[in-house]
Simulated scan of single mutants.
Amino acid sequence: MAELIPEFDSVVAPARKGIVRLLDHVVTWWALAGGCVFVALVVMSIISIIGRKLFSAPIEGDMELLMMGAAVGSAAFLPVCEMHDHHIKVDALTTWMSGRGCAVLDMVAHMLLMLASAAIAWRTILYVIECHENMEVSALLLVPMWQPVLLMVPSFVLLTAAALYRLLVSTQLALGAKS
């Protein structure tokens, strides 16, 4: 019978010490903060819907706040997914491969993610600077756009650090090291 929850062994989650443990705590708390953003968005949406239906007084700009908050909150979940190697994987093509072969593929995937997330962090920082210089604001609430965009930068930096950690773990496994 198929298991709904896979068993994770020490190969997937090696012991975390020192700076890796600190990174693990930071990405976990960052993801929890992202979850709090979503809870706040849900509460705001409920209040706005009730206000709109019962009192003809919705929260002004609720859709702008929802879009900004959803971007910030969802970016906060990416580092913890990478840190624990829980991104979606399609294993249909790798079931015949050895553990080391899969580790080599994981190594390439984590390296590509690390490079992409570093580029995204860099370009997001440049966009924050551009928005600040151009005084770009949202359409209805006139929120300076650099503020919510700036809140996404730490998520991408943490994603880069988590991808570097997973790259190192995958490299060790590909080289045959036991964790």
Rank of each mutant, 00 (worst) to 15 (best):
M67D: 11
K53H: 06
K53V: 11
L78Q: 09
V108R: 01
E82H: 05
V72D: 03
A109Y: 09
A57P: 00
S56R: 07
H84M: 06
H86F: 00
A75T: 12
G99P: 09
L93H: 09
H84S: 02
S56L: 13
M67A: 15
L54F: 15
A70S: 15
D62S: 09
L112T: 11
D106E: 02
F55Q: 06
S98D: 12
V90M: 11
G99L: 07
A76K: 06
L78A: 03
A76W: 01
V104N: 01
F77T: 02
T94D: 00
M67P: 04
P79M: 00
M111H: 04
K53T: 02
L66M: 15
P79Q: 01
M97Q: 08
V72K: 06
T94E: 08
K89V: 14
E60W: 13
A103M: 08
E64P: 04
T95M: 10
C81E: 01
S74F: 15
A75S: 15
M83F: 12
T95A: 12
H87S: 00
C81H: 00
S56P: 02
A70Q: 02
F55R: 10
H87P: 03
G69R: 09
A71C: 13
F55C: 05
M111Q: 01
A92H: 12
S98K: 05
A92M: 12
L112G: 15
L66N: 11
S74Q: 11
C81W: 01
I59W: 06
A76N: 00
L93V: 05
M68Q: 13
M97H: 03
V108C: 06
G61K: 11
R100F: 03
M97C: 04
A57W: 08
K89W: 01
D91S: 02
L54N: 08
S56Q: 07
S98C: 13
E60T: 15
H87R: 04
M67L: 14
W96I: 14
V80P: 08
G61N: 13
F77L: 11
E60Y: 11
A70Y: 13
A75W: 01
A103P: 05
A71P: 09
A76Q: 10
A57R: 04
C81N: 00
